[in-house]
């Protein structure tokens, strides 16, 4: 594959704050039109990486391109063509929805500005609230506004930093439908998240911890890459089964799925021995299963403690 096919193509990106290396030799290649998930615990360097890609932070080392522009020298060109949605709502709370969009549209020097703003409002179902102050909006509406603002100049790359934090499930689903629609139109999306139900929406996933990339694969290949074995367990007293398995050697993931308990681990013999502890429980049914994405994510997310704690330990 030539580098032209990658919307983001960076190698060795490194960022230090003081003596702390937040992002460490990070490589990333995002093909055009994909929804690329960026997973990792808090403080793992997701936000810093996204900011470096869109020119908001200068990398201390590394090189590469974003939309064909050099990330080190052409940050203005990148900013003009990228839509970046910040983790925290960063539009003006004392401006109305329409005023915020007008402002952003002016900064991008969009032709037919008024029409673009009107269309953006209509697209996101914000027309009736156009005059409402942004600060009075609920989380879900703020998020819609932020998305509208970062889409108003029709960027070909969207960078979304934990876009659905603090948003209710319905709004989150609507949001992902919108992203999917953009992807169908050829817009590339890089999205960071903690949520498993969002991760499964992505075409490809990079898992990052301590500023390093631990995993980078198409979403469907993730379970195989993580290499988990698993058992589905049923018992009359599932809580007792959970108590017996919790912390047992070999059990890396322990989670309820409806009426069943899934116990998974990478060391199959150890897992099998651990599962023997519950076989004698009343009503126990133990069945071997092929662990899916969810188990893989639970494993990944649980595997690394919050990075700020981890780094100081």
């Amino acid at each position: 594959m030539s580098s032209q096919e990658f919307v983001i193509d960076v190698r060795g990106l490194t960022k230090r704050f003081g003596d702390k290396t937040v992002v460490d030799h990070f490589d990333l290649a995002v093909p055009k039109g994909t929804i690329y998930g960026f997973l990792g615990p808090n403080g793992s360097g997701k936000t810093t990486t996204i900011r470096m890609v869109c020119g908001l932070l200068k990398p201390d080392a590394g090189e590469g391109t974003c939309l064909g522009f050099d990330v080190l020298t052409q940050s203005r060109e990148i900013k003009t063509n990228v839509g970046y949605m910040t983790q925290r709502f960063s539009l003006y709370e004392d401006l109305s929805i329409a005023e915020n969009l007008e402002f952003i549209a002016r900064l991008y020097q969009l032709p037919k500005r008024r029409r673009r703003v009107r269309e953006a409002l209509a697209d996101l179902g914000l027309s009736e609230r156009a005059r409402q102050l942004a600060g009075t909006l609920s989380g879900g509406w703020k998020q819609r506004l932020a998305l509208a603002a970062c889409m108003i100049h029709s960027p070909s790359l969207l960078l979304l930093d934990e876009p659905t934090a603090g948003v209710d499930p319905k709004a989150r689903r609507d949001f992902w439908d919108t992203i999917r629609r953009f992807a169908d139109d050829g817009v590339t999306t890089l999205v960071s998240t903690h949520y498993m139900d969002e991760a499964v929406q992505c075409d490809r996933i990079a898992y990052i911890a301590y500023g390093k990339k631990l995993l980078d694969a198409p979403t469907k290949d993730i379970p195989a890459q993580v290499g988990l074995s698993g058992y589905s367990i049923y018992a009359d007293d599932l809580s007792e089964a959970q108590r017996r398995l919790k912390g047992a050697p070999g059990v890396d993931v322990l989670a309820r799925f409806g009426a069943f308990m899934h116990a998974c681990g990478r060391d199959k013999p150890a897992l099998s021995r651990a599962v023997d502890r519950v076989r004698g429980l009343p009503g126990a049914v133990v069945k071997e299963i092929e662990p899916g994405l969810e188990e893989a994510f639970i494993y990944l997310m649980a595997g690394v403690e919050d990075n700020f704690n981890g780094a100081s330990a």
């Binding site: 910040t86 709370e93 952003i104 970062c150």
Partner: peptide, 12 residues
């Protein structure tokens, strides 16, 4: 207020 991030992500 964090609005600097959105401001700086534009070509201003």
């Amino acid at each position: 207020r964090g609005t600097i991030e959105a401001l700086l992500s534009t070509p201003v």
